[in-house]
Structures are given as C-alpha cells and as structure tokens.
Simulated scan of single mutants.
Amino acid sequence: MIPRAVKETELPTLSLKGRGKVRDVYDFGDKLLIISTDRISAFDVILPDPIPDKGKVLNSLSVFWMEKTRSICSNHLISANPSSYPVECKPHAEMLAGRSMLVTKAKTFPVECVVRGYIIGSGWKDYQATGGICGISLPAGLKQAEKLPEPIFTPSTKAELGEHDENISFAKVIDLVGQEDAQWLRDKTIELYLFGSRWAEERGIIIADTKFEFGATDDERILVDECMTPDSSRFWPVEQYSTGISPPSLDKQFVRDYLETLDWNKQPPAPSLPDEITSKTRQKYLDIYRILTGSELPTS
C-alpha cells in the first residue's frame, strides 16, 4: 500500500524558519529541525504532485552517507531519532520518523558545490559550446555521458526559490568566499564524491555527478543539507550505461525527461504528473535507496 504523501508540514508547537523547494525548516536556537517533505521540483519549479516516500528516501539516504563520511568531513547531523528531539517535537514524532533530522545551525556558503565525474546535462551543453565546463578545458571529442579523465569541480550560484542556479568559475568562488575556503570547498567536494562513487560502483551504480552544500559554525566548516541523494545526483545503473545518450537513471532526471516532452515553458505553474509517472518515480527512489544501503526503506 502506498502511504499518503506529506506535501507540507504545519506544526503549531514549533517555530517555522522557512520552506525550501523540498524541506521545511524549524528553528531551535542553535539547532534546526529539517523535515524532508514529498514535494518535488524540476527546473527550479515546485510541481503540484508530491511523490510518496520521497522525503524519507532523501532524509534516510543523507543520514546514511553522513554517518559514513564523518572521517572525510564533519557534518550538521545531530540525530535522526525523534525520541531525542526537543520535547516540543513529541506530538509530531510519528510524522517526523524517517523524514527529519535535528542538525547544528551553520552559516551556509553561497555556493552550490557541484562535482562531475561524467559529462552530461548542462555540463554537456557547456562542453559542446565552449570545449569545457565552468571554464575548465576538457579533451576534444568527448561523447555525451563519457567518463571524464578525473572528477571536476563545477560550482554554481545558490539561487533563491524560483530562480535558476548559474554555473560559475573557481575564480568567482574565491571572490565569494576567499582563497582558503574556496580550496577547502573544492577539495572536500571531490573527496566526498570519490568516496561515494566508489561505494556506489561496487553496488552497480554510477554517480555521474552530485552537489553538496557546506556551512561554517564558530568552530569548523561542515557538510549541510543533503548528501548524494536522487534529488542532488545522477545515478546510472552500470548495466544500462552507454555513451552517446543520456543513460536511464534512478533519480529525479526521470521526471525532468517527462516534463521535457510537454509544451511547458518551465515557469510556474508546473503541470501535474500522471499517476504512472508519480508511481515510477517513487519506485526509482526506493530502488536507489535499497541498492546503495542494502536495506529496504521503512515505509510504514
């Protein structure tokens, strides 16, 4: 039985800090409660139809990766167990289970830290036009979806809700955050990606690209937000991988591909998703969680 989707949270006992495209954030002073809803966005527009269990996949997979990568980079995760949350959360424990995390509050860097191991999407378009991505020159003659000689850091701006991210050069990152922080962001982004891509490949999955966000506390720089999820990454089954095409994926690209077949200008309001697309998207999210973690997602 497919559970009811959580499109938006209304928790009157808690202090709402804000809503993103997917996450609702509640403020607890030096901590935040982040709830991953089942909302889905494409082309920076929130779609009207949520995907049941999507938020649980995003939250649980982020927790999985954050626990595995603490030796590479500290992160904001304090707990994903509602029983350890502040007492005000107790009335909402059932809804919070599996789709929330209590985190350390941090000042986020104004950069989307994108890393690409394969040439696809906007990177492929950039390469076709310029011979490189984000000002990084690449070998001539690469095919769509081809593996790059080594992963590259291709950052973008962090757009406000409803606006579009824009690719920027590493020099622009230095302008935004300074030399030391820029180098740290680049190095940790690539190090996290290399760990994740090795883990995934051992389980038959290619992580073509992914993006991270980082923040700073008084003491250190940390990973925040989500980590190598089907919203922030392209996951390709190795057995279906081929160059010269956009390979079949276990991520949000499936929804983007469907929307590209419609006569939609990629501005609000977004079109509704047919039940078949919603169901297949849900299954792709559940499948990638199972493959990467080795466990079924608890969906009750």
Rank of each mutant, 00 (worst) to 15 (best):
R256I: 00
L273T: 01
S122M: 10
G141D: 12
Q179T: 11
F109L: 07
G141I: 12
T104W: 02
P271Y: 00
F64C: 10
W264C: 03
T69Y: 04
K56T: 10
Y241R: 02
P86Q: 07
M95L: 15
V103K: 01
S74T: 04
I78Y: 04
L176W: 02
S83D: 14
R186G: 14
N75K: 02
S295P: 00
V255C: 00
I2T: 13
P298V: 10
S84R: 01
K147P: 05
A140N: 14
K147R: 14
T13P: 00
D219K: 13
V22R: 00
G204W: 05
S246N: 09
R256G: 00
I277C: 03
D181A: 13
K266H: 05
E150N: 07
W236N: 08
I35L: 15
L102N: 06
D181Q: 08
K147E: 15
K7C: 01
I206Q: 05
G135D: 06
I207L: 15
Y258W: 06
P139C: 13
F170A: 07
D225H: 08
D44P: 10
K54T: 05
F212I: 14
K90F: 11
G294W: 03
S156H: 04
K252Q: 06
Y127W: 07
T299D: 02
I46T: 12
A159K: 05
I174R: 08
R234L: 09
I34P: 09
I35S: 01
G117V: 11
P3S: 08
P139H: 11
S100W: 00
S300D: 14
R39S: 10
M101V: 11
T189S: 15
D24C: 12
V173D: 07
K284Y: 08
G29C: 11
E260N: 10
S83C: 04
R39V: 08
P247A: 09
K147A: 13
D209V: 11
E276S: 12
V103S: 14
K143Y: 02
I133S: 08
T229Y: 00
A145C: 13
E163H: 12
P274L: 09
L176Q: 05
A140S: 15
E180Y: 03
I72P: 03
A42H: 01
S71I: 05
A208N: 04
E226S: 10
P268G: 13
P48R: 04
I2F: 03
A200H: 08
W184N: 12
Q253I: 03
A216N: 05
G29T: 09
F195I: 02
I206R: 01
G196T: 06
V22F: 00
I288Q: 03
Y26Q: 06
F235Q: 03
E10D: 14
L32F: 11
I245G: 05
P82E: 07
L259S: 00
Q179M: 11
L61T: 06
P237N: 02
S300G: 14
S100H: 05
D44Y: 11
L223K: 01
T108S: 14
G294E: 02
I174C: 11
W124G: 13
Y85L: 05
A140V: 10
V224C: 13
I72L: 15
D187Q: 15
K125A: 15
P3K: 05
L273G: 03
S79A: 13
N265A: 14
Q179S: 12
S295C: 02
F109V: 07
G29H: 08
E150A: 13
C227W: 00
Y241M: 04
K17G: 11
I34C: 12
R203T: 04
E213A: 12
D231N: 12
